[in-house]
Design a protein around this nucleic acid. Structure first.
Lengths: 153, 153
DNA sequence: CTTATTTGGTTTCGTTTTGCAACCTTTCTC
DNA sequence: GAGAAAGGTTGCAAAACGAAACCAAATAAG
């Protein structure tokens, strides 16, 4: 009676959620993107219980989203850093952030700006090859053979 | 000792996760984007327990992500449909899908294409106002006053 | 050098959530 | 009118979560 596994549902989204789909993981990743690296800092900034944080960091490391780096002079001091795979979640985290701000209003005390220009970011959108934004209604789901999905339900 | 609330952490990402951050919600939304509308179809397509599905659909409706539409001739037959807020999660779901495919390989039996051209979608990216893609290293986090974040951790 | 504090955990325990199966009522289908 | 389907609800056991206590090693303070 373990939690339902999402990694064998034949769905990429489910597969992603199997790795970072719990309540805390994406928040840990987001916090890491803000620069947090140490166990205690994650703990204090997120207000997460130590055992849960421990478990989440382990899972993130196991899944290649973060790495545990030894930084103590005599071992036993660590930093948790994002891998390339983890940094690549920036799109997901930013899309979530913007979605929340669009529909629930500004709840955040900080804002993201382009480091070069200082300007706020553009809204994250799904685009076609020409860079035109697409909604869910502008796309079609096709199977391996290119046939459109007959969605009975 | 209830689950930690994410909606009062002063973080938009946490606020978003408070609504759709559990294991199932985004999968339900994704399934709805594929065209699924009926309770039983969600149940069969996702392999989710009925009580959990019930709970998730209620929460999604409460949060304005989906609506329950009466479609029976004499009541008691319903469809669950995405609202504008729900459809707006397309970016998040697509970013997650692409992330998973990039790092875990193709696990999906279906693919998204532009309805007009039939071409696959471009990778979802964070962009600045000029449409140039930005990584997490190209952005800065500033507070309300525009001061850069001193991230002690 | 010795002591105190910090770090990064693990353990314990009670509560909540999850998954499964059984059951129930109303509504279609035949 | 009988039977099946839709859309739940309930009860139970297993697992996950949250808070606090506890602990050993490493660092900082004096």
């Amino acid at each position: 009676m373990t939690r339902k596994r999402f990694d064998e549902m034949g769905c990429s989204v489910a597969c992603a959620l199997n790795e970072v789909g719990d309540w805390w993981s994406l928040l840990v990743v987001k916090q890491a993107m803000l620069g947090t690296r140490r166990f205690v800092d994650f703990q204090h900034n997120l207000g997460i219980a130590k055992n849960i944080l421990c478990n989440r960091l382990s899972r993130l490391v196991d899944n290649g989203v973060m790495v545990r780096v030894d930084v103590g002079e005599h071992g036993k001091r660590y930093e948790y850093r994002l891998t390339d795979k983890g940094r690549d979640l920036f799109t997901v985290v930013t899309a979530l952030r913007q979605w929340s701000e669009r529909w629930n209003g500004e709840k955040d005390t900080l804002q993201l700006v382009d480091r070069q220009t200082g300007e706020p970011l553009a809204p994250v959108t799904v685009q076609n090859q020409q860079g035109q934004p697409l909604t869910v209604r502008d796309v079609r789901f096709v199977d391996e053979d290119g046939k459109p999905l007959e969605e009975a339900g």
